[in-house]
Design a protein around this nucleic acid. Structure first.
Lengths: 230, 230
DNA sequence: AAGTGGTCTAGACCACGTG
DNA sequence: ACGTGGTCTAGACCACTTG
């Protein structure tokens, strides 16, 4: 009936983080230290840390320690961010130095890409890999595809984002330096132009500790409706 | 260097689920059975199960077993769902019998509610608690607040949803029968009318295994922009 | 009575980062 | 050399469900 020890420990630490007692970026006590303080075994302390990781409050660095997330209250807002470059977005979010690097290459449309864009299998597409880091820490990586000749989303009028928690693909895991078994926040984006043509798709991964929440703002098109929440 | 045993086990099971070999709702082998089959200790099997739980593929019922999620590919789409009642939404999502129960009461505005709605502290508000279940399994619970006199979101033209993974509040945890330490998907909704007045806020919780992903469809308002992904 | 998952203990080895 | 987190073992007790 009482709450488990690891929930209590996580709650204690969460309170200290939210109150500012444990500021962003600081190293938490080691697992053995937490275990000692709370009079439990190290496994329990680890479980508490895993719970906080899943909430994005803590980032674990193997052989270094556990650290409070750099921006425990940072929120990712859509579609505001679609209206600006990655550089501008991260510049707004951050005061630390942000690095964005891009690699562009031409690829042949896979079956999936061909169907999405309504082009032929093997048609040429542009692939852009964008890696962003802040203060040396990786904060995002994305894989973007467009039919050859279309660049950017200036002509897009509609956008869809699909948010899920997934094991990262190896290339994303490597950049984000995630430990095997660590989940990441993934966003699959699609952009359409006014004619209804899909002009870009993108797969983005964020470390769990990057954002506290994901916000989406939408206009409601009136129909017959009662509306409600659930 | 090699991937940990628990990742491999989770991958094996995930493949069996995605391929349909392990159909939705079925009970997985017990932890001791999984451990035996893979030649590892039970702790490792449990860790694999936790990884799958975090992805929403598996639901764990204490003292019963682990079960494949009922709808491993179900997606929650916004804002479509805001246009219809909870009953209609769940009816579309499901062929099983869905139960929705509502409790309405009048409450006094807390400081938070008063500020949100632009009313005075202690002013009367409507609170609606909505609980939904499907085939006896709880699938959502929400707490909705509106200023007295406003019912529903028929007049809403804008909507915001804030998605995060959180420890549930006790009332939500109880309905969802979540184990202490289990996270839930939370959505904090806000609705505004054409005059820019906030007319409804709602806190919704879903079990981790309810949805595979959350989809948001948004119109892009053109400005000066370069656009891009990150 | 047997089986199950949840919690917890008390160890162990490894690889790597830091001093 | 030491501390760290990641992985793993081999047990234990509890509370509850199922047969």
């Amino acid at each position: 009936m009482p709450e488990p020890a690891y929930v209590k420990i996580a709650g204690d630490l969460t309170r200290q983080i939210r109150s500012g007692e444990l500021p962003p970026g600081i190293q938490l006590p080691s697992l053995s230290e937490i275990a000692r303080r709370h009079g439990v075994s190290e496994i329990v302390a680890r479980k508490a840390m895993e719970l906080m990781q899943a909430q994005g409050l803590v980032r674990s660095q193997p052989r270094r320690g556990n650290f409070v997330a750099e921006r425990p209250n940072l929120v990712r807002v859509s579609p505001e961010r679609q209206m600006e470059t990655a550089e501008a977005t991260f510049h707004h979010e951050s005061d630390e130095e942000t690095q964005v690097e891009r690699h562009t290459e031409e690829v042949r449309a896979t079956a999936e890409l061909a169907e999405a864009f309504g082009i032929a299998l093997g048609d040429r597409c542009t692939r852009v890999v964008t890696r962003a880091s802040e203060g040396g820490r990786p904060i995002s990586i994305s894989d973007t595809y467009q039919p050859l000749g279309i660049v950017g989303v200036d002509t897009a009028t509609e956008c869809e984002e699909r948010l899920a928690d997934r094991l990262p693909v190896p290339s994303h895991a490597e950049w984000l330096r995630s430990t095997p078994g660590d989940l990441v926040k993934t966003i699959h984006q699609k952009f359409w132009d006014a004619e209804g043509h899909l002009i870009m798709i993108s797969d983005i991964s964020y470390p769990m500790d990057r954002y506290d929440a994901f916000v989406f703002r939408m206009a409601l098109k009136r129909q017959n409706s009662q509306g409600g929440s659930e």
